[in-house]
């Protein structure tokens, strides 16, 4: 509870954070989609949760952009872990009479709460505007029933952020690492285009990487959920990844494998 309140207080003091969390995907939606999409729409391919085989591109990339909001927010909350370590606050957290796994889970939940709030702010502000010009098949109610999927996806990305924060010692390194995590995760996935296109274009390595990328499964899970369907494979993979990431993060923050520990050679 203490961690959540602190996160909310800090979030409310960082006025630009919510603004940038909305502007970033809004640019993709209003500018990128307008430029890349065509009036003919896009074919989602074999893995299609929509009732038709031809989808408005604005609608197609919305689950991916939702994933982008969650990805950035998840990484930002782990960035706060690195910041806490640099500022010394981490020492206070690690010396409170609470199990470390409990602290990490609390941190994960508070970060997830903020991520989901940002995701819904994006949906509430941007989707009605797009709907005026190009109505979506996905109903407004669809985004409400996608709530559990959005939470699960956010938990996975938050866990990944916590895991990364174990190994990233300085804020400067964190910024660099983000380039190797956020962008590859987002671009090598089905967030912006269906994967069959990669296969069709002969980019087989990227195609197989995208199939290994848990972000792909998270995006498809949200896409299915927003249409009232369950993408079981996606749910399973996202759930397993969440567990693996959080367990590895807990292991990393354990004093026996401590982030403060140096290795003994003998």
């Amino acid at each position: 509870m203490g961690l959540t309140i602190r996160e909310v207080k800090k979030f409310s003091k960082q006025k630009g954070r919510l603004f940038s969390a909305i502007v970033r995907p809004a640019l993709w939606l209003f500018v990128f989609a307008a430029g890349v999409g065509s009036s003919k729409g896009i074919d989602p391919g074999m893995l299609n949760f929509y009732p038709t085989q031809n989808i408005n591109y604005f609608e197609y990339i919305t689950p991916g952009l939702l994933g982008m909001v969650l990805l950035f927010s998840g990484m930002q909350s782990s960035l706060s872990m690195v910041y806490d370590r640099e500022m010394g606050v981490m020492k206070i957290l690690l010396t409170t009479p609470l199990p470390r796994w409990y602290l990490l889970i609390s941190k994960l939940f508070s970060g997830t709460m903020l991520s989901v709030i940002q995701a819904y702010c994006f949906l509430i502000i941007c989707i009605p505007i797009v709907n005026i010009f190009t109505p979506f098949i996905t109903s407004y109610f669809g985004w409400i029933i996608a709530f559990p999927a959005i939470i699960l996806f956010s938990l996975m990305l938050g866990s990944l952020g916590l895991l990364l924060s174990v190994y990233i010692k300085q804020l400067e390194n964190f910024a660099g690492t983000m380039n190797f995590v956020i962008f590859p995760m987002f671009f090598i996935s089905s967030a912006l285009y269906p994967l069959w296109r990669l296969f069709d274009n002969g980019a087989l390595i990227v195609y197989y990487l995208a199939n290994l990328n848990p972000f792909t499964y998270g995006v498809e899970m949200i896409r299915a959920a927003s249409l009232g369907k369950i993408y079981y494979e996606g749910v399973l993979i996202v759930f397993i990844c969440t567990l693996v990431f959080i367990l590895l993060a807990i292991r990393g923050y354990n004093p026996q494998n401590s982030i403060f520990k140096k290795k003994r050679s003998n």
Binding site: R6, K9, K10, K13, M87, G88, V89, K91, I92, T95
Partner: peptide, 13 residues
Amino acid sequence: GIVFQQPTIDMEL
């Protein structure tokens, strides 16, 4: 109760 050598207080709060 612990007081560390380096500051461990959240400057933004």
